[in-house]
């Protein structure tokens, strides 16, 4: 736990001194402007109807992008700095260090959500009411954690090969579609829906949108449980993969390569 928190703090300290946070904070409101502009083409009614989606989607997109970035960057940068060997040589388990650093993206999720919400109010004059203020923050944090473990699955790949960047790049838009970020999973072709349901983002996106609607969300805690459970599964797979790959690079001698 100590290691987890220290790694989380490290990541926040590093992020504060880089363009990352700025980028994530800019990305969400800019996307929100695009989505809200499209929504307002349908007049005030359109804006009101689509605002929840137009606020949730940019937040999740910024969160996911920044998580993918962190997953690739944390190990690649550590190697370039000559820090990675020392992390591995320390008694702290590498998966915990990585998880701690990934969890820092939760902060990006919170900032991104707040800034898209503000954009709707300040730019479009439409203040979306948070109808379920208890569920919203919990859902955002759960989403952040599940994002951390899911995007963290990429890190072992980066340890194996720097060309993992191509994989990283392809994991954005298809994932937004499958994860019901842009349109709810229920609007996807029928054969795609089960796949979408396996992606934690689809549960998060639905739930986050629901917190901005007047009707009480159905079974919010169970749905949160699904988000966390899917995140937990990703974390188990990620840990196994990472330990496996760590063994491979210790054998091949490529651990300290950049």
């Amino acid at each position: 736990m100590r290691v987890l928190l220290a790694s989380l703090r490290l990541q926040l300290q590093l992020a504060l001194r880089s363009a990352e946070v700025l980028q994530a904070c800019l990305m969400a409101p800019l996307l929100a402007v695009v989505f809200l502009s499209v929504a307002s083409l349908g007049g005030d009614a359109g804006l009101v109807a689509f605002a929840p989606s137009a606020i949730v989607a940019p937040a999740l997109m910024a969160l996911w992008t920044s998580a993918l970035f962190t997953a690739g960057q944390s190990i690649t940068e550590d190697r370039a700095l000559g820090v990675f060997e020392s992390v591995v040589a320390s008694p702290a388990p590498l998966p915990v260090v990585l998880l701690g650093r990934m969890c820092a993206v939760t902060a990006v999720g919170l900032i991104a959500f707040a800034s898209s919400w503000l954009t709707s109010g300040l730019v479009f004059g439409h203040w979306v009411v948070v109808e379920h203020p208890l569920v919203l923050p919990v859902a955002l944090v759960a989403t952040g954690l599940a994002t951390a473990t899911t995007a963290g699955l990429l890190a072992p790949l980066f340890l194996l090969t720097p060309s993992a960047r191509t994989v990283q790049n392809t994991l954005t838009y298809p994932f937004y579609l499958l994860g019901g970020v842009l349109v709810p999973v229920t609007d996807l072709p029928e054969w795609l829906r089960p796949l979408g349901r396996a992606v934690f983002l689809s549960w998060s996106a639905d739930l986050l949108r629901d917190t901005l609607l007047p009707a009480p969300p159905a079974d919010p805690w169970a749905r949160l449980g699904v988000v966390l459970a899917l995140g937990g599964v990703a974390s188990l797979i990620g840990t196994t993969l990472l330990l496996r790959v760590l063994h491979v690079v210790r054998s091949s001698g490529s651990l300290s390569h950049t």
Binding site: A6, L10, V87, A92
Partner: peptide
């Protein structure tokens, strides 16, 4: 990108 103290704090935590 971190200060000397922040660096050492992190490493000390990794060592428990």
């Amino acid at each position: 990108r971190l200060t000397a103290r922040q660096n050492l704090n992190f490493w000390a935590a990794l060592h428990g």
